[in-house]
């Protein structure tokens, strides 16, 4: 995991919260832009500024499967809650299946989570934002579907995204059709799409940390060959394995299975 300056997060273990994976905050001292890698999760975020006259803005993200650039001004700040992959419905409800790679801003986000609209007042304190976001997410009821999907999400992470959908369905004791429907309603992505993201993040890590060649990394990550790994890097990162951008932010996508290594 590699995190940028000005970024802090607290990872929650499953024992600490069934819904919150992490609470994070970020601050940019200078205007610029940064590349965000897709992690397949939904976040609820308040974006504000060190200038207390700026009115905070609510942001709700759908499960991301594509890299995207965020542009910012000096003093921009964010505080957000990252939900566990199988808890996207907390923010999107029944619309979850249709919001892949979408971001709701301002009034659109307030319509999704009207309980949080009251946070968008100039000068609001960060600790109040943090408390309100966590309380809102924690207050949403757990569903048996989310719990069942969570078991398969866990298997996907343990296997580094290398399980075929048929194997995951067999382990879950259901059909592949059923498992995909379950994922569509809880994660907001197909099983394959989510597993591909986990595989991509692990491959990235193997390239950077395993001490071998690109073809070693492709093999261990479970790609058929190096060309398949290159294709995944282009698709999820917008770069090629031999040219990974310097200073790339590699998020902790272990599903909060363990806790924060940096802590």
């Amino acid at each position: 995991m590699r995190l940028p300056d000005g970024y802090q997060e607290r990872i929650y273990t499953p024992q600490q919260s069934r819904s919150v994976e992490a609470v994070w905050r970020h601050e940019e001292l200078q205007a610029g832009r940064s590349l965000i890698l897709p992690d397949g999760r939904c976040d609820v975020i308040v974006r504000y500024n060190a200038d207390r006259a700026v009115v905070p803005k609510l942001v709700v993200t759908g499960p991301a499967t594509q890299p995207y650039w965020v542009a910012f001004e000096a003093g921009d700040r964010w505080i957000g809650v990252r939900l566990r992959p199988e808890r996207g419905g907390v923010l999107w409800g029944d619309a979850l299946g249709a919001v892949k790679d979408q971001v709701a801003l301002g009034a659109q986000a307030e319509a999704l989570v009207p309980e949080l609209a009251g946070l968008c007042v100039a000068g609001i304190r960060e600790d109040i934002l943090r408390q309100a976001l966590v309380r809102f997410v924690e207050g949403r009821a757990l569903t048996p579907e989310g719990h069942r999907a969570g078991e398969s999400v866990r298997r996907i992470h343990l296997a580094g995204g290398r399980f075929a959908v048929t194997e995951l369905a067999a382990r879950a004791g259901c059909s592949t059709r059923h498992l995909n429907r379950l994922f569509g309603g809880t994660v907001g992505l197909s099983v394959k799409a989510y597993a591909s993201l986990v595989q991509f993040h692990r491959a990235l890590r193997l390239i950077c940390d395993a001490g071998g060649s690109l073809s070693d990394a492709a093999f261990e990550a479970g790609y058929a060959d190096q060309a398949h790994m290159t294709r995944a890097m282009r698709r999820f990162g917008g770069f090629v394995p031999s040219d990974i951008p310097e200073g790339l932010i590699r998020p902790d996508v272990s599903g909060g299975l363990w806790g924060n290594r940096a802590a």
Binding site: R155, H157, L158, A159, G160, G161, R162, F163, E167, A170, R171, G173, R202, R205, L206, D209, A210, G222, S254, G255, L257, W258, R261
Partner: peptide, 19 residues
């Protein structure tokens, strides 16, 4: 515990009665 493996970038097929 299985949880700790992702810290080191390991991956495996978890032991399960159904597998």
């Amino acid at each position: 515990a299985e949880e700790v493996i992702e810290l080191d970038g390991l991956a495996f097929a978890p032991n399960e009665k159904s597998a």
